[in-house]
Design a protein around this nucleic acid. Structure first.
Length: 205
DNA sequence: CCGCCGATCTTT
DNA sequence: AAGATCGGCGGG
């Protein structure tokens, strides 16, 4: 952690050990803090997320049980589940529900609050600020999250990734999840209403 | 603005 | 063979 950095008021494990849909909604507006080695810290506001409901959700990686890849979704809440998408992009989830019950929230977009220079170095110096962490693959690239971070405990003090609670409840929009064929129809995508960093298509209500 | 397509590799 | 993606390209 960076010297002189403010203390982290991380969300407790019990906060994540709840209904996945609830956690997904309440993560909107929360703050993601990612430390990367040489005194580099990025702080970003979560503006879009999706709920994946484990064994009762055919779109979830946990639908077929605790496979090697998705097994972490069955274990302790408050951990990071990172996987490789389409062979080239990383996607980051936060594990939810009590230990033994599968669930996770996919982080789909965030808005940079601090560390803009660091994120631009990873994503491109000329990229529009609102696009830097827009989309799950772009979010991981901008925050330097990779398979190396799979299994990180967000509730542990020594972790390089933390989530801090939101100060106020932002206006929400809801819509169907993006990029899936099975299990579509369910409205498990949540976003900060009209926030410019939310990915397209824009969720409706 | 929209739709299509290829890249690239893990999982099924 | 499909997939919790992305950026580029061509057409309207």
């Amino acid at each position: 952690m960076r010297r002189g950095a403010p203390p982290i008021a991380s969300l407790a494990r019990d906060w994540f050990a709840r209904d996945t849909t609830t956690v997904a909604q309440e993560l909107i507006g929360c703050t993601l803090v990612v430390d990367s080695g040489t005194a580099q810290r990025v702080v970003a506001r979560i503006v879009e997320a999706e709920a994946y409901l484990g064994t009762r959700d055919p779109a979830s990686h946990a639908f077929r049980g605790p496979t090697p890849r998705a097994g972490i979704m069955f274990r302790a809440p408050g951990h990071l589940y990172v996987y490789l998408s389409y062979g080239m992009h990383h996607c980051a989830n936060i594990v939810t529900e009590p230990d033994g019950v599968a669930g996770a929230v996919l982080l789909r977009a965030a808005s940079v609050e601090h560390g803009l220079d660091v994120v631009r170095a990873r994503r491109g110096a000329t990229m529009a600020m609102d696009a830097l962490l827009r989309g799950p693959g772009n979010l991981c690239r901008g925050l330097a999250l990779s398979l190396l971070d799979n299994g990180l405990d967000l509730c542990a003090a020594e972790s390089r990734v933390h989530v801090e609670p939101r100060a106020a409840t932002p206006p929400l929009s809801v819509g169907p999840r993006v990029g899936i064929t099975v299990g579509a129809g369910r409205r498990l995508r949540f976003a900060w209403r009209a926030h410019p960093a939310v990915s397209s298509p824009s969720p409706s209500r």
